[in-house]
Computed example of a mutant assay.
Amino acid sequence: MEARRVMTEFNDMTGKTVRAFAPASTGNVSLGFDLLGAALKPMDGTVLGDEVDLELAETFSLEVKGAFAHKLPADHDTNIVTRCYQHFVKVMDEKGVELPAVRMTLHKHLPIGSGLGSSAASVVAALHGLNEFYGQLLGEVPFNQHELLLMMGELEGQISGSVHYDNVAPCYLGGLTLMAEQADTLALQLPTFKHWYWVACYSGITVSTAAARDILPKQVSMPNTLKFGRQLAVFIDALYRQDEKLAVSMMTDVIAEPYRKSLLPYFDESREFAMQNGAMAFGISGSGPTVFAVCDNLEQAQTISTWLEENYIQNDTGFSHVCQLDEQGAVANDISA
């Protein structure tokens, strides 16, 4: 991109507000520890994800709103959205492009430490929004999909402690994704079963990613290593051949769930109810405490969701939704009045 430092060379965005949305995601999908992720969209229209608004300003500022805004640090300089802005502007400056400042508003709809990719959703919404907003100013987006996803992994890693793409990739790209993490290919979008319903229930408690990783053994046995590899390979093959029965038979977690479930009160009871009432699979979403159930029948999914609401949720911040996969991923729209 050609360097542009003169303000008059920017397209006019005065008075325009761009809103970027990034959906919730479930990492691992049981069988794919750190390698699979899926974006979720409630069927009832509930906003399950984070939103970021952007508009031109004299100086940068961040405002935080939403149901879970009070759970974030009061100092907005430490907010991951601020870090995204600073990183984006720094990289653009290195390209010779000095950008005008923006005012950003984070609508924090996802709970922190929920296993729904909360930090990833903030990062994806912020960076995708910045790319689209400044793209309108410049006449072309500054970064392509691959470059932006690299940034997203780096920034999300500042929160989780290490770079993992199993939340940012599905959140950004949509659908079900497999992490390749190669120089030119970070994630691959996989075929899905369109008639699957994904029940996602957040209990209301917090499980930190660091704590969920610390509880895992440092080494995996040879039998479990072989089982993990076989499950993932067979599952992906079954997706491409649309062999639903074989795919769901692979959806058990031999790596993390045996250890992490101790952090989730009523997990075993919830699994038992779900599997006895039509679920094809049941597991921990990411590092928890959110759990998910996969069904091929909407009525059964609603029954499981209602039971989880009444039995798995532990306080008034918990929720349960019947979802399908969000195939669109992150989006940005002009919401100017």
Rank of each mutant, 00 (worst) to 15 (best):
residue 257 E to Q: 12
residue 255 I to N: 05
residue 229 G to M: 11
residue 232 L to E: 02
residue 164 H to T: 04
residue 236 I to S: 02
residue 258 P to F: 07
residue 250 M to H: 01
residue 199 V to M: 12
residue 179 M to K: 11
residue 150 L to V: 13
residue 162 S to D: 09
residue 146 H to G: 00
residue 193 F to K: 03
residue 170 P to W: 01
residue 208 S to N: 08
residue 161 G to M: 02
residue 177 T to P: 00
residue 163 V to M: 14
residue 187 A to H: 03
residue 150 L to H: 14
residue 236 I to K: 04
residue 160 S to P: 00
residue 216 L to W: 12
residue 241 R to Y: 08
residue 247 A to P: 00
residue 239 L to N: 07
residue 236 I to T: 12
residue 215 I to R: 10
residue 248 V to A: 01
residue 263 L to A: 11
residue 211 A to W: 00
residue 194 K to A: 14
residue 180 A to T: 13
residue 234 V to Q: 05
residue 233 A to P: 00
residue 184 D to M: 02
residue 135 G to I: 02
residue 189 Q to W: 01
residue 204 G to N: 11
residue 205 I to K: 11
residue 247 A to R: 02
residue 218 K to H: 14
residue 181 E to T: 03
residue 231 Q to R: 13
residue 139 G to S: 04
residue 207 V to D: 10
residue 189 Q to H: 08
residue 261 K to A: 01
residue 247 A to C: 03
residue 169 A to L: 06
residue 267 F to C: 05
residue 182 Q to C: 02
residue 244 E to V: 09
residue 159 I to P: 00
residue 143 F to M: 08
residue 230 R to Y: 10
residue 215 I to C: 15
residue 222 M to Y: 15
residue 164 H to Q: 06
residue 262 S to L: 08
residue 225 T to G: 15
residue 143 F to H: 06
residue 214 D to C: 07
residue 240 Y to E: 06
residue 183 A to Y: 04
residue 253 D to H: 09
residue 180 A to N: 13
residue 240 Y to H: 12
residue 187 A to K: 03
residue 228 F to R: 08
residue 246 L to P: 00
residue 203 S to K: 07
residue 207 V to K: 09
residue 179 M to W: 03
residue 255 I to G: 09
residue 247 A to L: 04
residue 173 L to D: 01
residue 265 P to Y: 04
residue 188 L to N: 02
residue 182 Q to K: 14
residue 170 P to V: 01
residue 166 D to L: 09
residue 187 A to N: 04
residue 258 P to S: 11
residue 177 T to C: 15
residue 256 A to E: 15
residue 164 H to C: 08
residue 242 Q to A: 10
residue 145 Q to W: 01
residue 212 A to E: 14
residue 215 I to D: 10
residue 227 K to I: 12
residue 189 Q to E: 12
residue 264 L to R: 09
residue 211 A to S: 15
residue 159 I to N: 10
residue 233 A to W: 00
residue 197 Y to M: 06
